[in-house]
Design a protein around this nucleic acid. Structure first.
Lengths: 351, 351
DNA sequence: CGTTGGCACTCTTTTGGTGAGAGTGCCAGG
DNA sequence: CCTGGCACTCTCACCAAAAGAGTGCCAACG
């Protein structure tokens, strides 16, 4: 296959583009007649039929049935996105909505959740925001607050400004001074390490401690291990919002398809796998239908972008929708939101 | 209307009960023949038809069309629930599932969210859990943790064991000792007051402070006001889970009805209004179809119960589903979950 | 040689009609 | 008061016919 997708001459490219655009707009199969009517070609339906037949032979178009118009295939969409699409510029309002929403909150969880809602509304698709386990991120400090007898709130601040907290129950008794001392100790000792590394160190220290018989150290280790255990389990870190938007899409007017789709969106593990694979990628990613296992089975497409600070991606934000979606609008939307989130996070980090 | 619903004689009551039960089980209109076949009546279809015609005249039954069987009306369901229903005893498994889930977590937000999921799964309906603004609840203590320059995490513990935290950004500079002092001051001074009361007191103090020119007090007031402002906005306090369950209900096989229903479930304000009105009620509440504005429009029913500690309700837990639901099973489920949550919360409070 | 009008062909969708089935209401007789 | 019988109504499934949409191919044209 030629590198620039040059196996298509100019006219064929224009026809493919027009078909994709019309199909995205109407949701219906496109006939040679409606192409002729659009006025962009000085050709008769018969001539356009020839071009369309060629495009079908090359695998860019398909016919639902003999006497129907043509519909783009996965390959057709892929070609469109790679070579034909002109991304729409976001409207003032779209940009403002995103900026406003992102700059609004301070707690990252909340901001991300809102982001998925905003994205869903702007795109009129399902919005997803994924934030993988924090175990791989470095901490800046750790504090402990006595909440009740035997109940302690641990507050972990990441170097990227993320704040996580968790209530720890313990048999041991701590007073405020001890807690403060422990927090200071851990913050100094483990600055810059990931939760995972910290846990391992603490476990190692258990051994050493046996010899030393230092009560304070013992308490520190016990509390520390509890605090880093199970932080942010897989339940909390995937927001899927706006599922109702797919109800208005004609491709899901069939109840059976609808049901399957909804159940698929509930299978968070599969989704997490998919989004995880988007995590390391730099730019905007678009996966169409058969291009990944998950989207293949359910005939989705996904437009995704990772966000985070310079050195390390923190998570993925994206849109899930039917293959037939306005990629030219979705792409800049997701891209812009991803950048806005990244900017926000870097501000937190350095500010 | 007679108080005990005695306008119906024994036979009519039995017929109504049987019709409701069969209809709930099958989802179809019930004919005189299928009633005769069930064996509980020693009557011919023709006789049952007479009884059914009477029940229809009284508004307990309705016919979808002339040559169809009968279906219970709102009034029919209401009568069934008030006078005829025998609540099913929960299975061992159901009780275990609820107990386990409720006793599991420590953070109340998380527990409540899980509760809505559990309820949805057990009931195979939409589960809702509502927790209104915390402004009306009393605090036990308040702590502040320095998260970053100009960024402070406030931790508020309610007398009911609820832990809320919020990141506050401020122009003022605080060091750890100051924060601890402020926390201790507020905890002691405002113990048992509601956030709302605290805010008002702090605002009042602003005036007094002008005269005194005490820098520390000034900082305390500024930080305190920030901390109690906007705690738990209306966004976070309603969990609606298991919307996919309605996809399997035959009454929503029509795509249009489905769409309307989903959109209705997204209108959280309306739902919150409704649940708020359930908050003050003591026992289990069941609202059927036309009995409330919201359920009327969308032809829902709702089974709800408030939970909380002895003196004050904290929130509402419930099920939303089609009018045709197994009330005899839903009622004890919701009731049991509500009690379990209340027990949990009281434990936190006293433990 | 690319383009075009014409035409036969295919497949889907709509329409109308018919018959079976389900259920009721009512009546007359037990 | 109960019950069998019967006429009536409404729905649903099925089928056939017709309409509509679109293609493929061919022959003619510039």
């Amino acid at each position: 296959m030629s590198q620039q997708g040059e196996e298509l001459d100019g006219r064929a490219r224009e026809v493919l583009r027009e078909i994709v655009m019309q199909h995205v707009a109407t949701g219906e199969a496109i006939s040679s007649r409606s192409l002729a009517k659009c006025g962009r070609f000085q050709l008769s339906p018969a001539s356009l039929r020839n071009v369309m037949a060629d495009l079908e032979d090359l695998g860019y178009l398909a016919q639902p049935h003999t006497s129907a118009g043509r519909v783009p295939t996965d390959r057709g969409y892929r070609f469109f996105i790679n070579y034909l699409m002109k991304s729409r510029v976001l409207t003032q309002r779209e940009r403002e909505t995103i900026d406003e929403q992102v700059s609004h909150g301070t707690e990252i969880d909340h901001v991300l959740h809102e982001a998925s809602l905003t994205l869903s509304r702007l795109a009129d698709q399902v919005g997803v925001v994924f934030m993988p386990t924090l175990l791989q991120f470095a901490i800046r400090s750790m504090d402990f607050v006595l909440v009740a007898e035997n109940k302690i709130l641990s507050v972990i601040v990441g170097t990227n400004g993320v704040v996580v907290n968790k209530v720890v129950e313990t048999r041991l008794n701590f007073n405020r001074e001890e807690l403060e001392k422990i927090g200071r100790f851990i913050s100094v000792e483990f600055f810059g390490l990931t939760l995972d590394q910290i846990r391992r160190r603490l476990v190692n220290m258990t051994e050493e401690e046996r010899a030393m018989q230092d009560e304070m150290l013992q308490k520190t280790i016990a509390l520390g291990i509890e605090a880093v255990n199970d932080v942010r389990t897989s339940e909390n870190d995937l927001y899927v919002e706006g599922a109702a938007s797919i109800l208005t899409k004609p491709e899901f007017s069939d109840t059976v398809a609808l049901r399957k789709t909804f159940l698929a969106l509930q299978e968070k593990e599969k989704l997490i796998d998919l989004l995880n694979s988007c995590l390391t990628e730099e730019g905007l990613q678009i996966l169409i239908g058969s291009e990944s296992d998950f989207t293949h089975v359910h005939n989705f497409s996904i437009v995704a972008k990772s966000y985070g600070s310079h050195n390390a991606p923190l998570g993925v934000v994206g849109i899930i929708g039917p293959m037939r979606m306005e990629y030219a609008r979705m792409a800049p939307l997701v891209d812009y939101l991803g950048r806005a989130l990244s900017r926000k996070i870097e501000e937190e980090e350095h500010g």
